[in-house]
């Protein structure tokens, strides 16, 4: 069936099977491979994107469910060449190693900061608790989000 989804501000119309998952629509139909695909069972969180402004696990959403709706992916974080503070935080605080979990982590972090601009370490850990990172031990992810929250003042001073 034909669907039209607004992704990162651009309308995309495509013919899809109802059983196509949103994660595969984004990656395979639109070429937006920043969204990763891992466990396929809504556990790991590498596939997190925003659907109508809310983070969801896109391996457990059908592309047809997004018809007429709005999606934001990691490709929609930066404003042109200017990185989102969350992205900059991950760069500065070594928030990633292999990078597999990173897009999902950043999408959740951006949402958290939009709703709670000054989250505590516990609040950050709770927000990303449905997302796995096998590399960093989470410590630097939390620091990266804190950096974004304070736009650098706090962390770079230390």
């Amino acid at each position: 069936m034909q669907i039209t989804v607004t992704v990162n501000g651009d309308e995309h119309t495509a013919d899809v099977e109802p059983r196509l998952l949103l994660v595969h629509f984004l990656r395979d139909k639109l070429g937006l491979t920043g969204t990763h695909w891992g466990c396929d069972t809504s556990n790991c969180g590498v596939c997190v994107v925003w659907l109508d402004g809310t983070p969801v696990k896109s391996c457990t959403v059908l592309a047809v469910m997004a018809d007429g709706h709005t999606v934001r992916t990691v490709e929609g974080l930066a404003d042109g060449a200017a990185l989102d503070p969350v992205q900059e935080g991950f760069v500065r605080c070594h928030g990633l190693q292999c990078g597999f979990c990173t897009p999902g982590m950043m999408m959740t972090a951006r949402w958290l900061l939009d709703h709670n601009p000054d989250p505590s370490e516990d609040e950050i850990r709770e927000a990303i608790s449905g997302q796995s990172c096998r590399c960093t031990g989470y410590e630097n992810i939390v620091r990266s989000v804190r950096w974004a929250a304070s736009r650098g003042t706090e962390v770079s001073a230390s």
């Binding site: 809504s42 969180g45 997190v48 983070p55 969801v56 696990k57 959740t108 927000a127 608790s129 449905g130």
Partner: peptide, 9 residues
């Protein structure tokens, strides 16, 4: 129940 992102949906 589950985690915050699953709870969103």
């Amino acid at each position: 129940i589950a985690d915050p992102v699953v709870r969103n949906r």
